[in-house]
Amino acid sequence: MTISQVILLLFIGFTVFTLDKKQKNIPVPTVLFLLGIGLSFIPYFQTIEVTKEVLYDIFLPALLFVSAYRFSPDALRAHAGIIAALSTVGLVLTAVLLGFFAFVVLGSVLSLTLIGALLIASILTPTDPVSVVSILKSASDDEKVADVVDGESMINDGTSVVLFTVLLGVYTQEHSFEFLPFIGEFLYVSLGGALLGILFGWGVSKAVHVTHHKEFQVMLSIVLAYGIFHIAEHLGVSGVLSTVAAGIMLSWEFNHTNKEDHYRESLAGFWDVVEPTLLSILFLIMGIEMTDHLSVGLWGWIVLLFVASLIIRFIVISGMVQFFPFWRNALGWKSATLVTWSGIRGTMSVVLLLSLEAETSGSADTLLALCFGVVFLSLVIQSLGIYPLSQRLKS
């Protein structure tokens, strides 16, 4: 991707954000994604190549950090139980059920193995709310639903990466699946990443007091967002969870300082510019990349898999809340439906798909086509439907 292409994509993103008048109805990232699909037919943009490293190492840390830093510590404290349950046990259970469904229904028709079906499910379980959270808060009277969706999406990214990595190793025959080693690795990668992020987030929250220059405080937040991500990956723990934990910890500590507004103003002024900048390029190039992986002949199965993923997610969410007395009463079928519909597949699913493509070298084209198709439907249908669904369920 050349500098001129990046500048042009940024200009397109700027134009879309500037002209947007009805963000509550049509999420800007969805518009950018659809524009990206249109741009893929223009020769000038066909030379753009999207790799897993570009998305994972450059875009993801900043977007995760912004999301975590903005997440309300009070909301996390209030909904920690349900968020943790949905993003760990709930995600694994969803992946298992969806994987078995794909194997039973698609296995014989598309020559899909059980591991391949489970790999598909692990790719389609992480959620990416993007602007859905702001839509939920403006369209729904129940803000806790938006908090749960936002919190779940931050943490389940890390869970999905661990699950995907193990299943990919089995799929490529690098190693066999063993339950106890899997649990041990899962706990090490996830808990290790979270603890590392908490430690560094706390350290930066103290170090920021060393200087009163806003520019240096912003520099320190950049170091934290990207530094902790790559340190964690180097140590073999979850960079995703480390970055999320660091952002939440930094926000939590700022809530207990007398100069909270000063620090938040400094960081917000910078990250409020970075986020739409990255989102503009990200969703445009995701749209450009998408057209190379869509298969017309599989659309019937893609639609079936998409519908099944929503139904299974709703069943899991409805079942999980029964273990929490407060949520059993507070999260009725309407709220469960909103949480289900808000579980949009996006950035992390595409990252995992690109990882699969790189590791399999063309031997997993069917898996890629199925998953890219479901991601396409999720980004378009769920994003565009969240506002009218919120309004309808509110009535």
Rank of each mutant, 00 (worst) to 15 (best):
D157V: 04
G158W: 04
G158P: 11
S160T: 07
L163D: 02
L163F: 10
F164H: 08
T165P: 01
V166L: 13
L167K: 08
G169N: 14
V170A: 14
Y171I: 07
T172R: 14
H175N: 10
S176I: 10
F177A: 01
E178T: 08
E178C: 01
L180N: 03
I183F: 07
G184A: 12
L187E: 04
L187Y: 06
S190D: 09
L191G: 00
G192T: 02
G192Q: 04
A194T: 13
L196A: 11
G197P: 06
I198K: 03
I198E: 00
F200Y: 07
G201H: 10
V204D: 04
S205A: 15
A207N: 05
V208F: 07
H209A: 14
H209P: 01
H209I: 09
V210R: 09
T211E: 09
H212N: 13
H212L: 07
H213P: 00
H213D: 14
H213M: 08
K214D: 14
E215T: 12
E215G: 08
F216P: 00
V218D: 06
M219V: 14
L220F: 10
I222Q: 04
G227E: 05
G227Y: 03
G227K: 04
H230Y: 10
I231L: 15
A232Q: 10
E233T: 09
H234T: 15
H234R: 14
L235H: 04
G236H: 08
V237H: 07
S238G: 08
S238N: 13
L241T: 05
A245K: 08
A246C: 06
I248D: 01
L250K: 13
L250C: 12
